[in-house]
């Protein structure tokens, strides 16, 4: 998993120097960060389209200058954090917001979505995400690759928990009618997932790990004898 705190390859030098200096407090730089967010939203590649540190500094700008807050920008930052592989990202964004921003309809909707996602209620999530009305704007609009990012996250959850699972269950959870198999072996409608450390469940014996340095005092004493 790529850490959210490492500089992504797509972060330009201009943004990087902004983030590491005191310019991050200069409200005039807000638009630069907003433009950068727009670029992240247009990029569908999940490996390079999320720069948490830059987005956090944008939220900090809003924290210090409440009159500059653009709720739609906040919405997009949160939606991006929602599908980030590191689960803490969403909270880290939230800590910088205020109760006032959180009570905005689109933001509180995102909070509900987050609840379903974290409670692994995926089918509920898909239903809530689209709403009852097809014409209704979704709170995750305008983010390239959102659905696929979300599926990747859910699949990660499934593959860490199951060794075998009915194909139908997976399809439901990732909201696809077919082709959810992802190249896995399917036998009689049951998928056998590849084993990895997360879904192996092997009993281990935790052994103590004594380092040589911890024994130096004793060894040197032994030398004196």
């Amino acid at each position: 998993m790529v850490s959210s705190f490492v500089r992504p390859s797509t972060r330009p030098d201009e943004i990087h120097s902004l983030l590491t200096g005191v310019e991050r407090y200069n409200p005039q730089k807000t638009t630069i960060l907003e433009d950068y967010l727009a670029r992240q939203c247009a990029n569908a590649d999940p490996l390079t389209n999320h720069d948490l540190m830059a987005n956090l500094s944008l939220l900090k700008m809003y924290q210090f200058n409440p009159d500059m807050v653009d709720v739609d920008v906040v919405r997009r930052i949160l939606a991006k954090a929602l599908i980030s592989p590191s689960t803490a990202d969403f909270n880290l964004c939230l800590y910088l917001l205020s109760d006032e921003i959180c009570s905005d309809a689109s933001i509180s909707k995102l909070l509900t979505l987050r609840d379903s996602l974290e409670r692994a209620q995926f089918t509920k999530f898909w239903k809530e995400m689209y709403g009852d009305d097809d014409d209704e704007e979704s709170v995750v609009d305008g983010i390239a690759g959102f659905e696929n990012g979300l599926r990747k996250l859910i699949i990660g959850n499934i593959t860490s928990t199951y060794q075998t699972i009915p194909a139908k269950a997976v399809e439901e959870m990732v909201n696809l009618d077919q082709d959810a198999e992802n190249g896995w072996a399917v036998d009689n409608g049951v998928i056998s997932l590849p084993l990895k450390s997360e879904n192996k469940a092997v009993a281990t014996v935790i052994k103590e790990n004594v380092k040589f340095e911890q024994l130096t005092k004793m060894l040197s004493a032994a030398n004196d004898i």
């Binding site: 199951y162 060794q163 009915p166 281990t204 014996v205």
Partner: peptide, 12 residues
């Protein structure tokens, strides 16, 4: 780990 409806438990 889950194999369909069977839970296999491992304790360290």
């Amino acid at each position: 780990a889950l194999q369909e409806d069977m839970i296999f438990i491992a304790e360290s």
